[in-house]
Computed example of a mutant assay.
Amino acid sequence: MGLTVLVLVAAFAFGRLAGGPGPLAAPSVRRVSLVVAALGVHLAEPLVAAEVAYSYPMCMAISATLMVQFAAGNLRTPGVALAAAGVCANALVVVVNGAMPVSESAAARAGISVERLALDTDSRHEPLDGATRMAPLADRIPVPIPGHREVDSLGDVAIAAGAGLYAFSAAYRRRGIFTESGIMNRWEPAERC
């Protein structure tokens, strides 16, 4: 999550610097209720985790389904498909393993102790080992953000990149890069949304 926030802030700031001052022109998105529903599923999961077996994999599968539907309605919106692919990658590795595998060596490289990971008491995460399926999609990328160290997956990186692309396109004032037809116009800004 920290990586996504960092990328969002940096992309937005870079977009404002590169595009100059002026009003924001965020690309329009449709069916936002699907994203709200996906977030709601994640917020509700801890409340039912004790009573519902495999609640976390089910939560991830439902979220991925909702995000695919959201992306299908917003294919021309910068970053949406990339973020949805990241959610699907995370859901896939969680569903096939029952939890998100975490590389303890990547955590050590990020500056996180094994005790702090608490993998033995966390039902959403498990240690990455030889029995892990789809290991390349697991949490194995150390991200030593100052003040917030974490281990991320390829899906997390895709979510951060998609969110950053959307934030940049929202902040960039000269909208000629992202036009409805997908054609780049270097000389004249596209019409405002």
Rank of each mutant, 00 (worst) to 15 (best):
E104S: 14
A108L: 15
A163W: 00
S181W: 00
L82K: 00
Q69V: 11
A161V: 10
A49N: 11
A26M: 04
V151C: 06
E104L: 14
V36W: 08
I141W: 05
D139M: 02
L43A: 14
R76N: 13
I159K: 03
I145R: 06
P144D: 13
I145L: 15
L3G: 00
V151E: 12
L47F: 05
V52E: 06
Y56L: 00
M134T: 03
E104F: 08
A107K: 01
Y172F: 15
N90K: 06
F70M: 09
F12Q: 02
V48K: 06
S123I: 11
V35T: 07
A158V: 04
V94G: 08
R174V: 03
N97G: 03
F14P: 00
V41D: 04
N90D: 08
V96F: 04
V68N: 05
D120E: 15
V35P: 11
L92F: 13
G130A: 14
S123M: 04
S181D: 15
R124S: 06
D122W: 07
T4A: 13
R31S: 09
W187Y: 10
A158C: 15
A160W: 07
L154F: 15
V68F: 12
M134H: 05
S105R: 11
L119T: 02
M58S: 08
L165W: 09
I177C: 06
V143A: 01
P189H: 07
L17N: 03
R76A: 14
A53L: 08
P46L: 07
G22Q: 10
H125L: 09
G182P: 01
G147E: 04
L24E: 00
F70G: 00
V96I: 12
T179L: 08
F14A: 15
T179G: 07
R173F: 01
A83S: 12
V102I: 14
G20F: 11
G182D: 09
M60D: 08
A91N: 04
T121W: 06
A190P: 07
V95N: 04
M67Q: 09
V7P: 01
T4Q: 09
V94D: 11
A49K: 10
V80A: 02
P142D: 09
S33I: 02
V95M: 08
M1T: 10
R133W: 06
G40S: 01
L119Q: 07
A50E: 14
L137G: 09
L6Y: 01
H148A: 12
V29W: 03
G73V: 06
F70W: 13
V114F: 03
R109F: 02
E150K: 03
A91L: 05
L39C: 11
Y172E: 05
L24N: 02
A85S: 12
V157C: 12
A50G: 11
V143E: 00
E45P: 03
P78F: 13
L8V: 13
A138D: 07
G2F: 13
I62K: 03
M60I: 01
D129V: 04
S105Y: 00
N97K: 05
C193G: 06
V157A: 04
